[in-house]
Amino acid sequence: MGRFFGGNEDERPSDVQERQNFTDTDFQKRDLYKKGVNHMSNDKMLDAIRSFELALRLDPQYVDAWVKKGYAHFHLGEYTVAVAAYDKALEIDVNNADAWNLKGLAYYKMKNYEKAIECCEKAIDINPNDGMSWYNKACYMTLTGKVDEGLEALKRSIEIDIQNARKAVKDRDFENARAEEGFRRIIEVVVLESIRQGYDYVGKIVWVTGIDKVEVEDAIMRLSMKGLLTRREKRNITGMEEYYELTKEIADKVGSTKKVGLLGRKEVSAPMQQLKDISDVLGRAREAVEKGDLEATKKCFDELINPAKHGSAMIEQFFDEHRDLRLAQIRLRDKGQEYLNANKSVLSDMISKIDMKVRQGPVSKPAKD
C-alpha cells in the first residue's frame, strides 16, 4: 500500500536523492539567474555575466541564461561574444524570437545590416505581433537604402504599438526616410496627437516629442492645410503668442484635451459623436465578418486602429480593445481569408463585446502630462 502522504513504497533511496538533487539544482540555477538580472539592472554587467555562467554550469540548456548573458556582453560592446551566446540559445530553441531579435541588434551595432535584417525576419516569422522586431527591421531596411520597405515595416510596428511613432520621429536611423511622404505623415500623426493632448505651442511639441522645430512647423502647416488645425493667438507678458487647436470637425472625431478645475487639471474624453461613429464602424465590421468579406473587414478594422481616424480615441478610451483589434488585423493580413473563415464566430463575438462597451457612453480619463 502506498504511503498516506504520497510517494511510492518501492521507490529506492537513490531515486529520492536524485530527485532532491534535481530540485536543488533547479533552485540554484534560477537563483543565480535572478541575481544576474538584478546585477544587469544595477549596470553591473561583469557580475551579471558571472551569475549567468554559473547558472549555465548547472544547466547548459538554460536558454534564458544564454540570452541574458548575450545581452550583458552586448552592453559591454562585446558584440561578437553576444552573437555567440545568442547562437547557443538558438541551438537549444531555434524558435526563440527574443534571441533572434537581439542577435539582429548585435549585428546592427557591427553595421552588418543584411544579417541584422535576416535575424529580424526570423523573429517576425516566429512572432508576427512583436512590434520591436518590426521597428528594428524598419531601421535596418532604411539604413540599407530600402526606404519603402523600411516604412512599411515601421507602419506595422506602429500598428502594434502606437508609441513606436513617437520613437521613430527622433530616431536618427530614419534620416534617409525623413523626406519621404510616408514618414512625414508619421510626423503629422505625432504632432496632431501632441496637440490633442494639450501640447499646443510649437515649443511644447518640440520638447515633448524631440522632433526638430522646422519639422514640427512643417507638419503644423500641412495639418492646417488639410483643415485639421486652427491657429490661435494669446497675449502673454512679452506680447502675442501663437498656439494651435484641433478644428471642431477633427476634435469631434478624435476627442480633445481640456483643462478643468482651479488647478487646470487636464482631461481627455471622446465625444458622443465619436462613440457613435465607432459603433457604426463596429456594426459594419461585424456584418463584413459574417459575410466573410476580407477586404471590408480589414478596412473597418483600419478605421478603428489608425490614429488618423478613430485609433486615438480607441487608445484613450478602450486600450485593451484597440490592442485586440490590432492583433486581429495583423493576423488577417498575414493569413487572409483562411483566418477569417476559421475565426468568424470569435471575431464577431469580439466586435459585439467592444460595441457593447462603446455604447455604454464616454469615459473621461486624466490626460498624461
Rank of each mutant, 00 (worst) to 15 (best):
E181I: 12
Q329S: 12
N343R: 13
S352E: 11
E9F: 11
V189M: 12
G2W: 12
E217Q: 14
E180A: 14
Q317V: 08
A285K: 01
Y33D: 07
D125K: 09
L294N: 00
L151A: 04
N21D: 12
I186R: 01
R231L: 08
S157T: 03
K253N: 12
D252L: 14
K35R: 15
G203T: 07
V214S: 12
I162K: 06
E290Y: 13
D277R: 13
R331G: 01
K167P: 00
N164F: 14
E159A: 08
I195S: 02
Q163L: 14
D320C: 09
V281G: 03
D349I: 10
E175F: 06
M141Y: 09
D64I: 10
M221A: 15
K234R: 15
Q28G: 07
E290L: 15
N101Q: 06
P366M: 09
A328L: 04
V67N: 05
K35T: 11
M40I: 04
I49G: 00
A55G: 05
S157G: 05
A342S: 11
L90C: 04
R156C: 09
Y71K: 05
V147H: 02
G311A: 08
A65R: 00
L58P: 00
A82Y: 01
C119D: 01
L294A: 03
E188P: 00
I211F: 06
R178Y: 04
Y244S: 05
E180D: 11
Q337E: 11
K276P: 04
E114K: 09
F301S: 00
Y243F: 14
V189N: 06
F27A: 12
E149K: 07
K204L: 08
W66T: 00
L46H: 10
Y244P: 05
P307M: 07
T247G: 07
D212S: 09
G150E: 03
N136T: 03
K335A: 06
R265W: 10
V37W: 01
A138W: 01
M1E: 13
H73P: 00
H39Y: 15
G77V: 06
E159R: 07
V254T: 09
Y201M: 11
D24G: 08
P271V: 02
K248R: 15
K368N: 11
N42E: 08
V260Q: 08
A251W: 08
H39G: 07
M356D: 13
V16H: 04
E338M: 12
N341H: 12
L192F: 05
S133I: 02
L32D: 01
N306A: 11
K234D: 10
Y339P: 01
V189G: 02
V281W: 06
P271K: 04
Q197T: 10
E321D: 14
V190R: 00
K146Q: 13
E242A: 09
D293Q: 07
E193P: 01
V67D: 02
N343T: 10
N129F: 14
A116W: 00
D161E: 14
N95L: 13
E159S: 08
S345F: 11
V214R: 13
